[in-house]
Design a protein around this nucleic acid. Structure first.
Lengths: 218, 218
DNA sequence: CGGTTAATTGAACGCATTCAACACGAGTGG
DNA sequence: CCACTCGTGTTGAATGCGTTCAATTAACCG
């Protein structure tokens, strides 16, 4: 498979291809981060490529007046830190205690001749683009109820598991959806009232009427 | 310059590198589109790569209930249609009468061995990602006034030209900013009232107090 | 248990929308 | 030159959705 064939290949997740994984395994090192620890900061130079081994990572951008926008959440297996240099536009933080594999980009560059590797990088970037475009649609033209519905739906990941773990708190959710914590909370309460979802605990829910949730999500 | 070095290179526009341009020139063909004509449609298979020669192109996504989100505007020289296959997520339309250069992706693939070409594609994709991330920030955490200010500022492109041409109408602007036409209009009136910009005509403006506009844009 | 943080709920407010009326400009034809 | 029309943009008034600020409740952890 040639590099530019990637243009036609679907890529829905940030899962890296095998070649990039090999470079990470052989030349990267692994670091643990505590909850809320910064992995890299906004405006810092772009140096590394990262991969979540365990836990969840979030990327955020801070406005001058303190308004926060969450860019994405990354789960075990996901690549992140693929931003355009020279400086990071988002900072990355550990949402939960987590382990992250990282490798210097200069080390990656050493293997640039490897077509498989190049393909992995392009693919990961394209996956990122796809997710960001979905995010734009979410933020631009959806109401609060729809935003929350779409978010919960995305967490289920199509699976039929009857209980879904939600690693992030209400505030992170709100900052991802362009809402306030209070509004998120209200919408969740509404969705429960309409018996579309059930929250046995704050960080865990189950979808009781998936069709209704999908309709809402738009 | 190796492919993966692109990871560290800044890329702020959708301007393609020389190699991709060559492929477009030699193997692409040129088509004219009338105002509002569709270049490709949402849900259509991804087949081609495009480049604006003359005029302006917009990409849009339509919700089930008719709500529209404008993804981006592309000007002369910009590449577009770089979406992740197999189907287009956005449709592309001629905002004004325009000429577009296009080439089959399979033709591009023929030249996959060319490192320069690969680099151009990755770079263009990264530029797209960058712009989309900025769009997320704009939509998620800005008020109407700030959105409009940021948009006008982006049209000036840092230039000191005292009169800026604005090719899109209020509705396109609104659908890009996640607002209504009326709100956009009101914000423009406000900015004029505060003597930050002047609109001699509907589609042309000049910035009278750039610092104030930048502060507003955040 | 208390102590602390996170989440829910309530009430008042404000910003953006909605719906409607009006203004403006460009093009056409009398 | 004016009248007419159509598309586009502006403005006004009322509504509603999400926010804000405050108070309460629930969850977590020693």
């Amino acid at each position: 498979m040639s590099l530019t064939e990637v243009l036609d290949a679907p890529s829905r997740s940030a899962q890296p291809a095998a070649a990039l994984l090999r470079v990470l395994d052989s030349h990267g090192h692994c670091t643990a981060f505590q909850r809320d620890a910064e992995i890299y900061g906004q405006e810092e130079p772009v140096m590394m490529l990262y991969r979540v081994l365990h836990g969840v990572v979030r990327t955020t951008r801070m406005g001058l007046d303190g308004r926060r926008q969450v860019g994405s959440f990354y789960y075990a297996g996901d690549l992140f830190g693929l931003e355009i240099g020279p400086l990071h536009d988002y900072s990355a933080e550990a949402l939960s205690d987590c382990e992250v594999q990282m490798v210097r980009r200069s080390a990656v560059r050493t293997f640039a001749g490897d077509v498989e590797l190049d393909r992995a990088i392009l693919e990961a970037t394209r996956g990122e683009l796809q997710r960001t475009q979905d995010h734009v649609m979410l933020l631009g033209r959806k109401g609060a109820r729809e935003k929350v519905a779409a978010f919960l739906l995305s967490l289920t990941d199509g699976g039929r598991r009857d209980s879904v773990d939600m690693p992030m708190g209400r505030q992170d959710m709100a900052d991802y959806l362009g809402l306030t914590m209070e509004t998120v909370s209200r919408m969740i309460s509404q969705l429960q009232g309409d018996e579309i979802v059930r929250f046995p605990s704050n960080r865990r829910f189950q979808v009781t009427r998936r069709d209704a949730l999908e309709t809402l999500a738009g």
